[in-house]
Amino acid sequence: MVAVRKPKLAVWKFSSCDGCQLSLLDCEDELLAVADAVEIAYFLEATRAQVKGPYDVSLVEGSVTTPEDIRRIRKIRKQSKVLITIGACATAGGIQALRNFNRVYDFITAVYAEPDYIETLATSTPIQDHVPVDFELRGCPINKYQLLEVVNALLNGRRPVVPAHSQCVECKAHGTVCVMVSQGTPCLGPVTQAGCGNLCPSVNRACYGCFGPKEMPNTASLAGWFGDHGLGPPHVRDFFRSFNAGAEPFRRESEAHE
């Protein structure tokens, strides 16, 4: 490669469990190569050293749940050439978006002795609701190979290979037998984006939808199947209401079974 200034990479955290940031540290075999290819300018999960912006690439984990988050993400956006959201929190609001279906004040009073000290928003929302996002990487957590692929594609000026098709495509490519057809097990695979590496189906379990809705998911048809196979409305609702509860197609389908 021609010797050029290494791109400055920053990793930011919002409301999240840090699992997606850990996926970057979990790259083990490839981590030294990544550290060699980019300047890790801001990544508190890994180092206290901080380099000031602007940044070439910002990876953003977590959802927006406080007024301060809104101010911070706007500032980060201004300092970043490319902003990539990583994980279900940043792309759909995460598991904490369950608050969106209830009154957040009820949760606060149930958990905290002094609820008045808590300043929080009524909803947990994805980063793209607040600032323009250049690319989103799905998953709860993200898949480390997809993360490497995106970093890699950016460094080499090519399109990342991150298909938006269903988990079923991944099952069939792996030779995994469909649990819906062969066992009658309710599965979110047909409406969920591929990319996890076929984790659950390959060990004979249904898909939980960690990667969120695939392109143009037919959630109504799948919900119809759930109903035909004995799931009552609360169960159908709960199927669509987990890590990606706030993703629009899943939110709408879950609300249709209230």
Binding site: H165, S166, C168, K172, C178, M216, N218, L222
Partner: peptide, 11 residues
Amino acid sequence: ARCLGCGNCTA
């Protein structure tokens, strides 16, 4: 209305 667009048939 029924089709999931999942691609199982083609696979």
